[in-house]
Nucleic acid binder design. Sequence first.
DNA 1: TCAATAGTGTCTGTTAGACATTATGGA
DNA 2: TCCATAATGTCTAACAGACACTATTGA
Lengths: 233, 233
Amino acid sequence: MRDRPSPASRSAARPATISIDLAVLSPRGGALAALLTKAADARARERWCLPWDVLRGEESLSDAASRMVKELFGQPTHAVDQIRAFGDNQRHPGDADLSVGFMVLVPSDAGAALGADYSWFAVDRLPTLPGRQHTILDAAIEMVRSRLDQSPVAFRLLTPTFTLSELQGIYELLLGRRLHKASFRRALHAAGLVEPTDELRSEGRGRPAQLFRYAPKKRRGTRRGVRFDLLPG
Amino acid sequence: MRDRPSPASRSAARPATISIDLAVLSPRGGALAALLTKAADARARERWCLPWDVLRGEESLSDAASRMVKELFGQPTHAVDQIRAFGDNQRHPGDADLSVGFMVLVPSDAGAALGADYSWFAVDRLPTLPGRQHTILDAAIEMVRSRLDQSPVAFRLLTPTFTLSELQGIYELLLGRRLHKASFRRALHAAGLVEPTDELRSEGRGRPAQLFRYAPKKRRGTRRGVRFDLLPG
DNA sequence: TCAATAGTGTCTGTTAGACATTATGGA
DNA sequence: TCCATAATGTCTAACAGACACTATTGA
């Protein structure tokens, strides 16, 4: 590259097959879970893997991922975020040369119409996955955690209206750490991310909780990211 | 995807050519600059573009990027970070179906041996680039900015030893905002990222500055990212 | 001596983190 | 009534942000 690359060196290009792999994350039973699907491997054993497909025709990467999400969940379109490309020599169920991973966050009520080949697994209780897909899933989890305090990813894991305890639960799930309730609410109020509805929800015994919706105020004056108070543990 | 994809639908795969594109960033003349190279386009006009190459053989993505960096800069190996894959229908100089962008951060003294086909351009004074590479460069700049307070990217833009004013200059460059000197140093000390050497550097007139090196302490007790004080402006 | 840059001490308003208390439902 | 959960008020230590000052060199 110190000299301009010769046409000869560039001709070493090898056409490659590209897959799109989805890391679909959702809160299930108090834990962060990933959506896996059953696939028979070469020896006809049943194995679990991430939902994936090959990239078609002139389709763009994000269009392909959105199409797959629509096929999985139907009309309500969930946002997709590209993680990155994964091209090391790890195993992929489609033997793709290159896989582009996408992170999809869905609320706990999504996926009711999924077929029997699909199941949710808590991310700390995963079955064995093809090596590359395991890497993709790890990267997705790290991505959602790292974005927690900069972007409203938590709300994509919640139904349109939610209680503040549910919201706090999402943060605790992703941070793996208990948060302080009063400080959490104060920080949330300062961030101006939610607004109350006039509905309440009674959750067994105890005082009913007010329902909130995600309603970010235009711009918060402070440069700081939304940082929430942590318990000493 | 609600039903398992049929072999027929998966057979729609189209072999693709993949390029590796480098967004090499470095501080030059008080501004953040990108390394571009001259390339003749189809009509033999000279155009500038990011350094790129096709992905070869069984080479992994990061190996390919590292190889390109080594070819550009020689022995001292600079770290590479993948940005993401770029596959939309924007123009690429090699007409690659898919391009994987990498961010490379190099100090201001790197690149002395680069050929005449290479030149640094301040990122706010760029020539016209192929559309996809412009997108890659924008993503690289956003990436380095977003990582500033979470990971030690600033030190990769500095020589091994540096003055605190130089370090502060890097932060100001990337944040596009002046910082408060005393607060910057206090926050830096609290973060435990640097240690003084016993050398001084005299920079024209004024008191000579102590040289520091990057030496992160194992773990800072605070959960917070390294956040530096900002001037009101 | 002046100018210019390096580096430090201290003050203050804000807030993270913790405590305690009240509110409101179900069993 | 008791208990469980929701929601709010207040205290305190820590710190962001700012100001003012000292230190050390070249011109």
